[in-house]
Amino acid sequence: MFNKILYTTDFSDESKRAFALATSIAATHQSKLFIVHVTETTVPVTVLPPASAATSLPPVVPTRDELSEQLNRITPGDPIVQYEQELLSGVAGNEIVSFTIDTAINLTVMSTHGRSGLERFLLGSVAEYVVRHATRPVLTCNAEFQ
């Protein structure tokens, strides 16, 4: 029985598909759904763009308030699903695994992005880290899940 389900989001389209699945499972099992986003506090690795793109502006990093607003917009459409939202800071994989232990989560639902090669080497895989270190089941949805 899954009485506490964790859904992690990075606000991408892939994670939105995982949210539909997490909400469905929570409704079926009458579980509490924890909706979590982790703000990375590590120093990002920057890959220099080609010279033709050098004049473009760097990406805008959202503030904590903006992230909270985004997180607050993610709510289950089914009124039977009780939920809480948490905005965490740190290294995403570590924070997710710690949250599952501290909150006694029974199931984690998260998306994968299908990165490979250099991009995966540089950015890593949060989903892979969570699967390897979690003490409870982790359900991953790949980028092609509909």
Rank of each mutant, 00 (worst) to 15 (best):
N3W: 00
Y7L: 12
Y7P: 04
T8W: 04
T8Y: 05
T9S: 09
F11I: 01
F11Q: 06
S12E: 01
E14I: 10
E14T: 13
R17I: 02
A18R: 01
A18L: 03
A20R: 15
L21Q: 11
A22G: 06
A22E: 07
A22S: 08
T23R: 06
T23L: 00
I25Q: 10
A26Y: 03
Q30K: 14
Q30D: 11
L33K: 09
L33F: 04
I35Q: 09
I35W: 07
H37A: 09
H37V: 08
V38H: 01
V38N: 01
T39R: 15
T39C: 09
E40S: 14
T42L: 12
P44L: 07
P44R: 10
V45W: 09
V45Q: 11
T46Q: 06
T46V: 13
P50F: 09
P50G: 12
P50Y: 09
A51V: 14
A51E: 15
A54C: 02
A54T: 03
S56V: 12
L57S: 12
P58K: 03
P58D: 06
P62A: 07
R64N: 11
E66N: 05
E66I: 00
E66Q: 14
E69M: 09
Q70E: 11
N72K: 15
G77T: 10
D78G: 02
P79T: 01
P79F: 00
I80Q: 07
Q82R: 11
Y83H: 15
E86I: 00
L87W: 05
L88K: 10
S89K: 08
G90A: 06
A92L: 03
A92I: 05
V97S: 05
V97G: 02
S98W: 05
F99T: 03
F99W: 02
T100I: 06
D102V: 01
T103A: 12
T103M: 10
A104H: 12
I105Q: 07
L107R: 02
M110S: 08
S111Q: 01
G117A: 05
G117V: 04
G117R: 03
R120T: 10
F121N: 01
F121M: 12
L123N: 04
L123R: 02
S125F: 01
V126T: 15
A127D: 05
A127W: 04
A127G: 07
E128Q: 13
Y129F: 14
Y129S: 07
V130L: 02
R132M: 00
H133F: 07
A134V: 06
T135Q: 15
T135K: 15
T135S: 14
T135H: 14
R136V: 09
R136G: 00
V138P: 08
E144T: 13
Q146K: 15
